[in-house]
């Protein structure tokens, strides 16, 4: 099954590129499954991507992310831009099931062909959230959506991973949740390009804004270039600008998403960051490297799954179990078996 012009996958890819919504939806399912067909489809779509600006929106549960994304999307539509939305929620680690409820807050967007919303479960995916969400973003990008939002709940690793696939990261806080502390703990301040205090109609909003401003003052306000989060290996030399700040000071903005208040300011900030980051040397290289690293990671896992001799694997488990070998040594031996010419 190769991508010859007549194959079903290239027909699907062509329909995606023509902007057929049903084809796009099916293509996303195919990419999400993470199998050979998905990789083939990705190869067909990839050359047509790279035009969209991707915006990660993350924050604690219930801060109003979906409501805000919906309001921002409507704002972009008023500005004449098309919008894709990927709403990510965690899967249950026990059943693999998921309840994806973000669309409830996005009903105002329905009926608009310039908007495409897709809900996604993390599925404890191989290669993590960033791999699958990144593929979905690519499909929306190839289909021509100009601004793509990725909503994730900032409850762990995911919001950091989102930084490897979003050009602009928006952190959403709400007053009175003691979130200031959470932000610091998760290191979110370093990944966020725009900090939003939503639910500004509630008590304590000014204090939360002030607290975030104060924290930015402490860190000097210089923002690092998006780091290679989630990248587990380092190959060759990092680009020279890797560790220096990019001179972007994250604005702190108050919004009332339910009323659309403050939304234009957030859009302006996203566009300002887009203009700022587009001029930053090395940004595109960062994304290319992050994507390549994820793909490598997955390819290596697959290689392992395909070529690992079950008997050798069992032997290694027994060795670790009986403590005749430590896990690292046992793993190194298994990897040695995979090297060319080592058929043991």
């Amino acid at each position: 099954m190769t991508g010859t012009p007549s194959s079903p996958l290239s027909a699907l890819a062509e329909r995606v590129l023509r902007g057929e919504r049903r084809a796009l939806a099916q293509a996303i399912s195919c990419l999400e499954a993470g199998e050979a067909a998905g990789r083939e489809l990705l190869a067909l779509l990839y050359p047509h991507g790279g035009r969209a600006h991707t915006i990660g929106v993350t924050g604690a549960p219930g801060t109003g992310k979906s409501t805000l994304v919906s309001a921002l999307a409507r704002g972009y539509r008023r500005r004449g831009l098309t919008v894709g939305i990927v709403a990510v929620d965690p899967s249950s680690p026990f059943t693999g099931g998921a309840l994806l409820g973000d669309r409830v807050r996005m009903r105002d967007l329905s009926g608009d062909p310039g908007v495409f919303i897709r809900s996604m479960a993390t599925r404890g995916a191989l290669g993590g959230l960033a791999r699958t969400a990144g593929d979905v973003v690519l499909a929306l990008d190839a289909a021509g959506y100009e601004r793509i939002f990725v909503e994730t709940v900032g409850a762990g690793q995911d919001e950091v991973e989102v930084a490897t696939l979003a050009h602009t990261v928006v952190i959403v806080e709400a007053p009175g949740l003691g979130d200031e502390v959470q932000v610091l703990k998760a290191g979110l301040l370093e990944t966020g390009h725009i900090l939003v205090v939503n639910k500004a109609d509630r008590d304590g909003a000014e204090q939360t804004v002030a607290a975030l401003q104060a924290m930015l003052d402490l860190t000097g306000g210089a923002h690092g270039v998006v780091d290679h989060h989630g990248v587990r290996m380092s190959v060759g030399e990092a680009p020279a600008d890797d560790s220096v700040g990019d001179g972007w000071r994250p604005p702190v903005l108050a919004t009332i998403a339910t009323e659309g208040r403050g939304v234009e300011e957030v859009l302006d900030a996203i566009e300002a960051h887009r203009a700022h980051a587009a001029s930053a040397a090395g940004r595109d290289r960062h994304f290319a490297e992050a994507q390549l690293a994820r793909a490598l990671d997955e390819a290596l896992r697959r290689l392992l799954a395909e070529h690992l001799d079950p008997a050798a694997y069992e032997e290694a488990v027994q060795a670790v179990l009986s403590r005749s070998a430590d896990p690292y040594t046992a793993a190194a031996r298994l990897v040695d078996l995979l090297r060319p010419g080592n058929d043991r």
């Binding site: 309840l99 409830v104 009903r107 809900s119």
Partner: peptide, 17 residues
């Protein structure tokens, strides 16, 4: 919706009206 989720399905819930 919750029962289907607990049975391992991915459930998209869209709300009222």
């Amino acid at each position: 919706a919750r029962a289907l989720r607990d049975a391992g399905m991915e459930v998209i819930y869209t709300g009222l009206r």
